[in-house]
């Protein structure tokens, strides 16, 4: 059935795979991480889940997680592609 009005529907990836925007990739040092969760709290795009795994398919590589990490456990490495 077609919509009576032009209406968008919610879908994951509505803006494409934003991970391709990245120039720097976050790399977590699990030894240094104390699982405080500040990175997940400050991620503007909610790309860090409850287990603090970063979704690289969508992470735009802004680096806020690395900047705000109190243990400096996240490093930003240049993307090779």
């Amino acid at each position: 059935m077609s919509d009576p009005v032009a209406m968008s529907r919610p879908r994951k990836g509505a803006a494409g795979k934003t991970g391709t925007w990245r120039t720097f990739r976050p790399v977590v040092d699990r030894e240094a991480c104390n699982a405080c969760g500040l990175c997940a709290m400050y991620c503007p795009d909610a790309c860090i889940d409850a287990d603090l795994e970063i979704d690289l398919e969508f992470c735009k590589g802004c680096g806020i997680c690395a900047q705000e990490c109190p243990k400096k456990a996240i490093r930003m490495d240049r993307e090779e592609r």
Partner: peptide, 10 residues
């Protein structure tokens, strides 16, 4: 907000 919006990085 589903992954991801078109907002600028950061």
């Amino acid at each position: 907000l589903l992954k991801c919006t078109t907002a600028c990085a950061g």
